[in-house]
Amino acid sequence: LKGVVVAGGVLAGAVAVASFFLRNKRR
């Protein structure tokens, strides 16, 4: 169960970083 929580956190972080980079590329 702990691994699932960690994986979810990593996935959420990756999505946040990806969206951040996409926003920067638009400018």
Rank of each mutant, 00 (worst) to 15 (best):
residue 15 V to P: 10
residue 17 V to R: 06
residue 20 F to H: 14
residue 20 F to C: 02
residue 18 A to H: 02
residue 24 N to Y: 14
residue 18 A to V: 00
residue 23 R to W: 09
residue 1 L to E: 12
residue 9 G to V: 05
residue 27 R to V: 13
residue 5 V to S: 06
residue 6 V to C: 12
residue 7 A to P: 04
residue 23 R to K: 00
residue 11 L to Y: 08
residue 15 V to K: 08
residue 24 N to G: 05
residue 23 R to T: 05
residue 8 G to K: 04
residue 3 G to W: 01
residue 22 L to K: 05
residue 13 G to Q: 12
residue 13 G to C: 12
residue 26 R to T: 09
residue 24 N to H: 00
residue 26 R to G: 10
residue 27 R to P: 12
residue 6 V to A: 02
residue 16 A to N: 00
residue 22 L to Y: 00
residue 21 F to S: 09
residue 12 A to G: 07
residue 27 R to W: 13
residue 2 K to Q: 05
residue 2 K to H: 03
residue 26 R to Y: 13
residue 19 S to C: 04
residue 15 V to D: 05
residue 27 R to A: 08
residue 5 V to W: 15
residue 19 S to H: 04
residue 14 A to N: 11
residue 23 R to D: 11
residue 4 V to E: 05
residue 12 A to I: 14
residue 2 K to V: 03
residue 12 A to S: 10
residue 17 V to W: 14
residue 3 G to T: 10
residue 13 G to W: 09
residue 21 F to Q: 02
residue 5 V to I: 01
residue 26 R to Q: 08
residue 25 K to V: 11
residue 21 F to V: 07
residue 2 K to L: 02
residue 13 G to Y: 12
residue 25 K to E: 11
residue 1 L to G: 11
residue 22 L to S: 08
residue 7 A to I: 12
residue 11 L to S: 03
residue 9 G to L: 07
residue 19 S to K: 01
residue 1 L to V: 09
residue 26 R to E: 03
residue 4 V to P: 08
residue 3 G to C: 14
residue 7 A to S: 04
residue 16 A to L: 14
residue 15 V to N: 11
residue 22 L to T: 01
residue 20 F to L: 11
residue 14 A to R: 10
residue 8 G to I: 01
residue 3 G to Y: 06
residue 1 L to F: 09
residue 22 L to D: 00
residue 27 R to G: 03
residue 10 V to G: 10
residue 26 R to L: 01
residue 23 R to Q: 05
residue 1 L to W: 01
residue 23 R to S: 07
residue 15 V to C: 07
residue 25 K to C: 14
residue 5 V to T: 11
residue 9 G to W: 15
residue 20 F to P: 11
residue 3 G to M: 15
residue 10 V to P: 03
residue 17 V to N: 00
residue 24 N to A: 08
residue 5 V to R: 03
residue 21 F to L: 11
residue 10 V to W: 13
residue 19 S to M: 01
residue 25 K to Q: 11
residue 16 A to E: 15
residue 4 V to S: 05
residue 4 V to Q: 07
residue 5 V to K: 14
residue 24 N to C: 08
residue 11 L to V: 03
residue 15 V to S: 09
residue 11 L to A: 12
residue 26 R to K: 02
residue 25 K to T: 13
residue 19 S to D: 01
residue 4 V to R: 08
residue 7 A to T: 03
residue 15 V to G: 06
residue 11 L to M: 05
residue 13 G to P: 07
residue 16 A to T: 15
residue 13 G to K: 07
residue 1 L to H: 04
residue 6 V to I: 09
residue 17 V to I: 09
residue 26 R to F: 07
residue 18 A to D: 03
residue 8 G to C: 01
residue 11 L to T: 09
residue 13 G to D: 11
residue 26 R to V: 00
residue 3 G to H: 09
residue 4 V to C: 14
residue 16 A to S: 04
residue 7 A to L: 10
residue 15 V to F: 00
residue 1 L to S: 03
residue 25 K to S: 04
residue 2 K to T: 14
residue 21 F to R: 01
residue 22 L to E: 14
residue 18 A to P: 12
residue 8 G to E: 07
residue 16 A to C: 06
residue 18 A to N: 10
residue 12 A to P: 02
residue 2 K to N: 02
residue 19 S to I: 08
residue 10 V to L: 05
residue 10 V to A: 06
residue 17 V to T: 12
residue 8 G to M: 06
residue 6 V to N: 12
residue 13 G to N: 15
residue 9 G to T: 05
residue 16 A to K: 04
residue 7 A to N: 06
residue 6 V to W: 04
residue 17 V to L: 00
residue 17 V to D: 10
residue 4 V to K: 01
residue 25 K to G: 09
residue 3 G to D: 07
residue 9 G to N: 12
residue 17 V to P: 00
residue 8 G to H: 11
residue 6 V to M: 02
residue 9 G to D: 08
residue 10 V to S: 10
residue 18 A to T: 04
residue 19 S to A: 04
residue 20 F to T: 06
residue 16 A to H: 11
residue 11 L to G: 08
